[in-house]
């Protein structure tokens, strides 16, 4: 009797997890399938759940009607550079906040948390003026700067969590052997933390790659546009061309999904450990 219940339970579990899998995969599947249909087939009924003929004309089209390669390059460049700067800055701050407790350190952590809760649009008018005064409007530097700013608090918190898991005795030993603290940090601690640091880097990269609103605010020149800004100008047109739209969406989504699939274990670990233990 009990055994039969167990079997029933297992079957139920498989069915439920299966339904959830379909629910999660189908939207992306549909976008990919749409992008691979010949342009006239997209708008003809009955809908084809598998294209009769696979065609890449939507992909060709998106590069023809827009400077898609420029947007791709800009997004890649800005996301990589900003993520790298974020790491340089937050390895230091995360380390210090993990190892030392001093007057104001608690308040500082709180100040970092709070930035995650405020609707940042409030500051947009001032930021726009600041960018304009610094001569950064329409320049990639504006986004590199602001993406760094946006990620520094969260990545500090995240890296602090990783540093806390590494015993301080390791760098103390290196310091007795004559390393400076900074030397110990970069030669001893950072190599051990590589999984955590990679997770933080990928997290930062994905956030930058996806960011839309600052990019709309600060960039209005074709040659500096990032992917999301370009997508935004596609959908604000009166009539959306879903053929090239689906191709553009797939191209925007693929890098982050692939990165996530490769590193999900580290990312999940990095994101959860703070919440579960704290």
């Amino acid at each position: 009797m009990k055994k039969r219940f167990a079997k029933l339970g297992l079957a139920g579990k498989i069915v439920v997890l299966g339904i959830y899998l379909v629910f999660m995969v189908f939207p992306l599947y549909w976008m990919i399938i749409t992008s691979l249909k010949p342009r006239n087939e997209i708008f003809t009924l009955p809908l084809q759940y598998w294209p009769k003929k696979i065609s890449f004309e939507n992909y060709v089209q998106i590069f023809k009607i827009s400077k898609f390669h420029v947007y791709l390059g800009n997004s890649l460049f800005i996301s990589l550079v900003a993520a790298a700067i974020v790491l340089l800055v937050t390895i230091l701050s995360g380390y210090v906040l993990a190892r030392f407790s001093f007057r104001g350190s608690g308040q500082l952590m709180m100040a970092f948390f709070v930035t995650q809760m405020i609707p940042l649009f409030i500051g947009f008018s001032t930021l726009y003026m600041m960018m304009s005064k610094m001569g950064l409007l329409n320049k990639q530097a504006s986004l590199i700067l602001m993406y760094t700013v946006g990620l520094v608090p969260f990545c500090t918190i995240m890296l602090r969590g990783f540093f806390q898991r590494i015993p301080a005795s390791l760098e103390e030993a290196a310091m007795i052997d004559g390393c400076s603290r900074l030397g110990a940090l970069y030669r001893v601690i950072v190599p051990i933390m590589m999984p955590g640091i990679s997770a933080t880097f990928i997290f930062a990269f994905v956030q930058n790659w996806n960011e839309l609103f600052m990019a709309i605010m600060f960039i209005d020149r074709e040659s500096s546009k990032t992917l999301p800004v370009a997508m935004n100008s596609f959908i604000t047109k009166f009539d959306i061309d879903w053929g090239s739209m689906s191709a553009a969406t797939v191209l925007s989504v693929v890098p982050t999904v692939v990165l996530f699939a490769i590193c999900q274990r580290f990312i999940v670990e990095g994101l959860t450990q703070g919440a579960v233990k704290g």
Partner: peptide
Amino acid sequence: QGFVFYSWALSGFLIGII
């Protein structure tokens, strides 16, 4: 996990478009 959790890596804007 890779197949069901990937939505985390997408932007809200693109999900809106999808």
